[in-house]
Design a binder for these strands. Structure first.
Lengths: 172, 172
DNA sequence: GTCTATAGGCAGATAGAC
DNA sequence: GTCTATCTGCCTATAGAC
């Protein structure tokens, strides 16, 4: 799904990669939209766990932001990008449950990021004028776009470069 | 294609919207990849024309940048985003000619934007530290991501807000 | 240029044996 | 839980009449 999008893969593809038949995949996920939903939910949980770890572990807001961008970098390689980046592009073709799952993934990350931004501005480690919410949305959107461009250019450095420029806009 | 992506629409969809049969669409575009390529090429030409107009008409670099972002806003409504945003997400599933056409669309806009940025920095109307190329890529990626998020949130203001924040990062 | 008709394939999905 | 076999439907694409 991260590689070819929701409309770009089939049960047969998944089955072949697992070395089973497509009927087997249907046994676990009767409908394709359920499979898609489950994948988003799993990623949402993993992402939330990672955010909690960052919150507990990373020393300052700057480090937190870098670690946040790192989560996206982890999901980027030569073929695949993060789930949200592919799926939001296919948004109009997806089932309501899948849309809601994607929305949740975005609002969760945006809220987390907005909170960190606000704290950073209060303790003086960050500096920006717009609302934390707007800045968070801009940064997340920037990371998504950068991932997609990095893949089509087959150059992960494009992502790193964009991520550091985006984070620099709020540096104190 | 802007609404549902390349893998999300069919000849039947296009035919129905035009009030013809799918055979008629095949007469003009025998293969689907050719149809996709033609649509990208057409958009590339329109985009290039618009960029030339901006270059000739917009008074200063700040105005040029705002007009550039406006081109993306023109391509955003409640259901559709710009071609590049949808297609780059499906990149792995597309034909080589389609990929090349998308790459061209990106490099064209990035070059134009990088040139404006450089001129702005030289005449003092803009201010940024990284290379014009990197900044251009970051802004374009940011606009793409913002378009996708604006659509899924059904809120065009999210795009406007992100666009103005992105452009503010290079304001003199 | 547009139509009807249809080919051939693959998609998502199910039934039933093991 | 996994398999083989199969259904149904839509997909891309083509042939040939008008």
């Amino acid at each position: 799904m991260r590689e070819r999008g929701f409309n770009g893969f089939s049960y047969a593809n998944v089955a072949a990669e697992l070395g089973v038949t497509s009927a087997t995949v249907h046994y676990h996920f009767p409908a394709k939209a359920e499979l898609g939903e489950a994948l988003i939910t799993r990623d949402t949980e993993r992402f939330a766990d990672a955010l909690a770890t960052i919150h507990a572990g990373a020393p300052g807001t700057q480090a937190k932001l870098a670690a946040f961008a790192g989560l996206y970098a982890d999901r980027l390689n030569a073929r695949g990008v993060c789930l949200c980046a592919v799926l939001v592009a296919e948004y109009e073709t997806l089932s309501e449950p899948m849309r809601r799952a994607i929305d949740r993934l975005f609002t969760d990350s945006e809220e987390w990021l907005a909170t960190v931004l606000q704290q950073g501005r209060e303790d003086g480690s960050l500096c920006f004028e717009a609302s934390p919410r707007d800045v968070a949305g801009t940064i997340i959107g920037g990371l998504l776009g950068a991932m997609l461009l990095a893949r089509s250019n087959d150059d992960v450095n494009r992502f790193r470069s964009a991520a550091s420029l985006l984070l620099a806009t709020v540096a104190g």
